[in-house]
Design a binder for these strands. Structure first.
Ligand SMILES: [Mn+2]
Ligand SMILES: [Mn+2]
Ligand SMILES: [Zn+2]
Ligand SMILES: [Zn+2]
Lengths: 144, 144
DNA sequence: AAATCTAATGCAACTAAGTTGCGATAAGAT
DNA sequence: ATCTTATCGCAACTTAGTTGCATTAGATTT
């Protein structure tokens, strides 16, 4: 069940006339391969391993590009750095281990209690949760 | 229904033998008065308005102290800065306006859909949500 | 295959949030 | 009033991310 989104993303980019640089393709591949959202720093490390040594500026600019193109989503667990995952993934949530930082994907089901029970059965010991809703407040809806 | 936590917190600190400095008391008062979680920068601004001009280092150290004493909780919406609110507040969640940054407290009820409907009635237009569960993964439970 | 166009890159310098070491100050006990 | 030490101010540092500008390299054209 671990389908790859790589080919589709690359095709779309080519169709839209964007260049397929080594770094661009490698970043998509790493995000596709990764089982958890990656930080800019982690990406730089993975690219270095592959023999590519892009400057951090380029990686940040590539991330900005991919956010614009809605290829990736930015997320932030309360670390100092942002993390990124492919936008093609179905909407889901995360369970994060407070000790080792391991991140597990969680399907978005309706009830909070429900999800916590499910995690319990998987032996993940939930100690808290964080829920945020994003959108437009009343006054910001009017002025748009 | 806007009860104050100030007196209780101050009493506890005194009982435990901590010093009641001007800045310490002012920070608690500002967090108590604020209707939304405050960042370190916002706190520094509020203190300046009151005639206190503490160095940012002192404010950060005070925040660290209050986290240790569990007087405040750290939270982070995907901004670059952290935010803090009184730990004495009942567990709840937040609705954040993507335009003006306004933050509204949301009671922690069971269903996600339920909360979104409630926000809709209050004219807050939800465009997305973020849910994270924190705890211990299987292997980190064993090694503790 | 070479010339061309310009998106993407590298570098240096910068910003913003937060941290650390250390000597000075002030809260509160005696 | 004096003393003790928790707290503070300052300078210097760190880490994540950003910006301006000159250079390089994908892709297209010749
Ligand atoms: Mn995920
Ligand atoms: Mn709140
Ligand atoms: Zn773990
Ligand atoms: Zn708003």
């Amino acid at each position: 069940m671990k389908r790859s989104f790589y080919d589709g993303i690359i095709r779309d980019l080519k169709d839209q006339g964007f260049r397929l640089t080594k770094v661009r393709m490698a970043i998509i591949e790493e995000l596709d391969r990764a089982k958890k959202p990656l930080s800019a720093g982690e990406l730089i490390g993975l690219l270095k391993k592959r023999g590519l040594g892009p400057h951090k500026t380029s990686v940040y600019r590539e991330i900005a590009f991919m956010l614009e193109q809605e290829i990736i989503n930015r997320l932030s667990f309360g670390e100092r750095q942002d993390r990124f995952e492919l936008a093609a993934l179905e909407h889901h949530h995360h369970a994060i281990c407070k000790v080792c930082g391991e991140i597990e994907d969680i399907a978005c089901s309706e009830g909070i209690r429900q999800i916590e029970e499910m995690l319990g059965k998987q032996k993940f010991k939930v100690s808290g949760h964080l829920i945020e809703f994003f959108g437009l407040c009343t006054s910001c809806q009017q002025s748009s």
